[in-house]
Design a protein around this nucleic acid. Structure first.
Length: 443
RNA sequence: GACCUCUUCGUCCAGCGGUUAGGACACGGCACUUUCACUGCUGUAACACGGGUUCGAUUCCCGUAGAGGUCGCCA
């Protein structure tokens, strides 16, 4: 087909809402294909519907793509030889192409609108993902190219721009599959080479419904806001609808580029699995280099737990390092900090019930408190020794003391490694907190 | 309604005529951790249904059902 010409692909969003993960995935696959083949990625803004366009939506597209690391070699803010890259600025070009169609007799006037006279012969779409599809066009109404007010319709400008911008491969959502015969008719009427098409299946929610703005994980911005790492989101998006032959799941972007092909694109729609995306994110968080992690975690700590600045002498760095292996998402540092920092955090109810139900719990905890009070040096080893001594005296396993201790200390049933947390908090605070919550629990 | 696409564990993907149908997430168990988690091991769990073709179908063909998409002077 066009195997000898350089690959040129495009992502052509409309700035009418937010950047949907589905759109981002489409952009990503185009970008991957371009990278894989040393081609060019074009960003084209399809803003022909003046009434629906917003500057905020445009910004969301730029921000979202950049955050994910998807760049473009031609388009807004970077320029290129085939601009302008906003359709709203390309009317002269469209006028010229329309005139060509008028001259060749493909267009007629219908109450001021310009309509394309369909050849009404079957059109075959040779799709790289969906296969060869032949559509009967004989009953289809003629498409409108230009409204009476002079503004142009999507199908026409989309095709004109793909011709003008020398697009060789069109990779887009399956919602465009049935538009493709119309587009092919236009390419042919204009005497242009039809690009290679690949239509990728859409994303659905877990329940099979269409993903819309309110749904969890639907907008790219929501990942930014929730502290996801872009590399993790990109990795997850790559795996939805595509997979490498060897079944690996955690792949760097460069590994994906090296392997990406559309023979391995999936044909069926996939349901978005937020839990798996989260899991992948936790893998990336765990691998974050220390300095990078601390910088990000500190920012999230300030954002999610502003009270933090109130206490002097609190070793924030040590605390953040302690919680790193527990995090699925960076903003969770807020909850962990609350457990460490807040003396009056209400205890989890389930934990309270469990501890209150344990035989001798109050006695054992008072014993532990006494031992901790006598701990000479406040080190992990010494604290451990105190716990062991308590266990021996109370005739229980040391491990049995840990859950109640955790609850009294942090108010939670799970969290960071306990001994380092005790050390971090300091003896007097630990004792005060244990005493206080012990009284709350058994009064 | 018409047309198009799709249909393997709950979910995401492997599989492309002969497999004990594989991996990952989630879930359960065990081990490790004197706790929480991580990790390792392990368990439950799937070829939508009905016909063909074939010595043999999850895999090929035809139906049915279900899901999604498209039928604009939206993009």
């Amino acid at each position: 087909m066009t195997s000898d010409s350089p690959v040129r692909v495009r992502f052509a969003p409309s700035p009418t809402g937010y950047l949907h993960v589905g759109g981002a995935r489409t952009a990503l696959f185009n970008w991957l294909f371009a990278k894989r083949h040393g081609g060019t990625m074009v960003l084209r803004i399809e803003d022909t519907d003046a009434a629906r366009n917003t500057p905020a939506a445009l910004a969301a597209i730029f921000d979202g793509l950049r955050w994910l690391g998807i760049d473009w070699q031609e388009g807004p803010e970077v320029g290129g030889d085939y601009g302008p890259y906003f359709q709203s600025q390309r009317n002269a070009i469209y006028d010229r192409y329309l005139q060509r169609l008028i001259d060749s007799g493909h267009v007629y006037d219908d109450q001021g609108a310009m309509r394309f006279r369909s050849p009404r012969v079957p059109v075959t779409v040779d799709d790289q993902v969906c296969g060869s599809i032949t559509i009967d066009r004989s009953q289809e109404p003629d498409m409108t190219l230009r409204r009476p007010d002079g503004s142009y319709i999507f199908h026409f400008v989309n095709v004109v721009d793909d011709i003008e911008m020398r697009i060789t491969h069109v990779l887009r959502g399956e919602d465009h599959l049935m538009n493709t015969p119309k587009h092919i008719e236009l390419f042919q009427a204009l005497g242009a080479t039809v690009p290679v098409y690949a239509h990728i299946p859409l994303f659905l929610n877990q329940d099979g419904s269409k993903m819309s703005k309110r749904d969890q994980g639907a907008s790219v911005a929501s990942y930014q806001e929730n502290g996801f790492l872009p590399a993790a989101v990109v990795n997850y998006l790559c795996l939805l609808g595509w997979s490498p032959k060897d079944g690996r799941e955690k792949l760097s972007i460069n590994e994906v580029i090296a392997l990406f092909d559309w023979e391995h694109l999936n044909r069926s729609p996939s349901k978005f699995d937020y839990a798996k995306c989260l899991w992948l994110n936790s893998q990336y968080v765990a691998e974050l280099p220390e300095a990078e992690y601390l910088e990000m975690a500190q920012a999230w700590a300030r954002e999610k737990y502003p009270l933090l600045t109130d206490r002097a002498g609190f070793d924030l760095t040590a605390a953040l390092q302690l919680m790193k292996p527990k995090l699925k998402q960076l903003p969770e540092v807020g909850e962990h900090l609350a457990m460490l920092f807040d003396d009056d955090l209400p205890m989890e109810e389930a934990g309270q019930i469990k501890v209150q139900g344990q035989a001798e719990a109050a006695r054992n905890l008072r014993l532990l408190l006494a031992h901790l009070n006598e701990t000479p040096a406040w080190t992990g080893e010494a604290i451990q020794a105190s716990i062991n001594a308590t266990a021996t005296e109370a005739k229980v396993k040391p491990g049995a003391l840990m859950f109640p201790l955790r609850l009294l200390l942090t108010g939670a049933t799970h969290g960071v490694d306990l001994l380092p947390a005790l050390v971090l908090l300091g003896k007097s605070r630990v004792l005060a907190r244990l005493t206080h919550r012990l009284n709350q629990l058994f009064s």
